[in-house]
Amino acid sequence: MWEFIARSLEASTIFTLAALGELLGQRSGILNVGIEGIMLFGATFGFIAAQNSDSYAVGFLVAIAIGALLGSLHGFFSITLGVDQVVSGMGIWILGFGLTTFIGNPYTGPLGMDRIPTVFGVSPFFILSVILVAVMWFVLSKTSLGLRIRSVGENPSVAEVSGINVARTRYMCVVVGGMLMGFAGAVYSLDYNPVWNYNFLMGWGFIALALVFFSLWNPWILLGGSLLFGFLWQLSLNPQLFLPGVFSRYIWRTVPFVITLLVLMVMSTKWFRAKWGSAKPEALGEPYVKG
């Protein structure tokens, strides 16, 4: 039982890190639907780097670097070139999905390194992810940097007039966001499930994307959502622990996805919106042209 909880926390760590990266970008007005692609890149390159160097540190650093690179690619397309953000994000996802399948294939199989030690049975990355949530909350709501980020996400032209460099702020957010997504991928492939297999994520990135919508763009609610989905994901893998014999294991695999849809629906009803309001950044997804 304790092991199950520890695994759930580990799963939720991956959701938290990736979704936190997305949240930061969205707060600055940039939607990135390519989370899963960046995670795949981070996971694959982190895996290859760690295996070749026999060092976890190298693996994680490579994953973070590749995440930053893809974040800046998304920034280049959507901020500098003004390409539709959805198109750019889709491009990054399909690039990640296609290229990592090809590049990672010779590495198919287990990582073959000693497991990363746990802290009282819990992955150290879980603790790190909670700290990062607190940092993100503090930066976004208590610092002038956070105010700048939020203002370019709400109304970039007003922000520009008041002396904020919109493009630079947005770049910073998508690059740091990309780092978090790449890191999340590496936590998957180096710690959570250190085996490389083609397209192994199977929807983690898309659930993380949905989690940002659930969170009302609040890091603490995001953490709550991640904990819930980490638990659900683990449950869908091991239903026999709680409800042995109910449904086929394949049906259980659909459960996190079905619940994602249900939550999205509830959140989009008039009742929910009237009660909680919409915290969506006003300029999300809109390309900004300096006028």
């Binding site: 690619l73 397309f77 070139l81 390409v83 198109v87 750019s88 889709m90 491009g91 990054i92 399909i94 690039l95 990640g96 999905f97 296609g98 290229l99 399948t101 090809f102 590049i103 294939n105 010779p106 083609y198």
Partner: peptide, 18 residues
């Protein structure tokens, strides 16, 4: 290595975005 067609898919897509 396996996945030439997948890699082509990815490269085509990202070029198209640019």
């Amino acid at each position: 290595s396996f996945g030439v067609d997948y890699a082509l898919l990815g490269v085509l897509m990202i070029t198209l975005v640019g």
